[in-house]
Amino acid sequence: MVQERATWRAWLILIVVIALQTTWLSRLILFGVHLDLPLLSVISVSLSLGWETGVAYGLVAGLLTGYCSDAYVGSFAFSRAVVGGVLGVLNTHFARDNPLVPPLCAMGGVLLANVIFLIMCPTEFSVSWWVGNTINSMFLHMLFIWPVHFVIGHLVLLPERSMFASNR
């Protein structure tokens, strides 16, 4: 019951995240790349709620990303679902209170998503562009995962499960 409630909250967060990304954050470009808030939320949700929710959340986040960009719907959905699944599985091996876990997962998640994207759409861009974009994107998302994981951790997880929760 509690897990279901957390999952519902995650879906509501996804709607807000997509709306935020397509309005305010769509104009924000740092190091030459867009900040992908839905991808960060996939990483955070899979770290918080496990691989099952991670896959489903990633799939829907990817579909919505594709719908809003009018392109690569399947590639976005598949890459985000894999990221959600893989990080959700790996999550059980990490210490929850280790502050290095979110940035390392963000780095791995961005790399994994971009590799899948490259495999699925190899002719859409040059490899040199892809390499530069991926490196910048990994760095940017490593920086921004902390605030995103902090907020999602507070909104989705039970107090005792959140690494950011106070010891009330």
Binding site: V33, A71, E124
Partner: peptide
């Protein structure tokens, strides 16, 4: 304008 795309691959607005 309702929204803009947010990926590095397309330039779309709604």
């Amino acid at each position: 304008v309702i929204s803009f795309d947010f990926t590095d691959y397309k330039r779309i607005m709604m």
